[in-house]
Simulated assay, not measured.
Amino acid sequence: MPDIHAFLSALRELHPDLPRYGRAGGCFKTYLVLKQVFPQAEPWYDGCHVITKVDGRWFDIRGEIQPVSEIGTEFIRMDPLCFNRAYDWQMPAMTAEAAMREVSHV
């Protein structure tokens, strides 16, 4: 299995804005990238930020983190129907059927 720390480090090095983007608007997309490499990855959300749980450990673009919300709420596991193009504000929302088709590819 790939080293998740090395993977996230390489991801941050792709572009100087990636660490900021991964915490401000791109956190769900960071989960999607991690899901491609680590199929067991799960998205968790506190109402403001998505973090990724992999094998009982928590990650975001910064690397391994503690699941402590910066807004004081609890992280909960995201339901796939909540994805519905999460954070793709420029895209129209999908129907539930289309969202389920997209989720089956994640």
Results as ranks from 00 to 15, higher is better:
Pro39Asp: 13
Met94Ser: 03
His5Gly: 03
Val50Ser: 09
Gly25Glu: 02
His15Leu: 03
Met100Asn: 02
Pro67Ile: 10
Leu32Asp: 02
Lys29His: 02
Cys48Leu: 08
Ala96Gln: 08
Cys27Tyr: 01
Ala96Asp: 15
Arg12Ile: 08
Ala24Gly: 01
Glu97Trp: 06
Arg101Thr: 00
Gln90Pro: 02
Gly26Gln: 00
Cys27Trp: 00
Ile76His: 11
Val50Thr: 13
Leu34Lys: 12
Cys82Thr: 12
Met1Gly: 12
Asp17His: 07
Thr30Asp: 08
Met100Trp: 05
Ile65Ser: 06
Leu11Arg: 12
His5Cys: 07
Cys82Met: 13
Pro16Met: 08
Gly72Tyr: 10
Met78Phe: 12
Pro39Phe: 13
His105Ser: 06
Gly22Gln: 06
Tyr45Val: 00
Phe38Ile: 09
Arg57Phe: 06
Ile4Ser: 00
Arg62Glu: 15
Leu32Asn: 00
Met91Val: 11
Lys53Ser: 12
Arg12Phe: 06
Leu34Thr: 02
His15Met: 00
Cys27Asp: 08
Ala10Asp: 06
Glu42Asp: 11
Asp55Leu: 03
Ala99Leu: 00
Ile4Tyr: 00
Gly47Gln: 05
Met100Ile: 06
Ala99Ile: 01
Ala93Ile: 12
Thr30Pro: 10
Gly47Tyr: 11
Met1Gln: 09
Ile51Gln: 04
Gly26Ala: 00
Glu74Phe: 05
Gly26Asp: 01
Ser69Phe: 14
Leu32Arg: 12
Leu34Ile: 14
Glu13Phe: 04
Phe75Met: 07
Pro43Gln: 15
Arg85Ser: 03
Gln90Phe: 15
Pro67Val: 14
Gly22Leu: 09
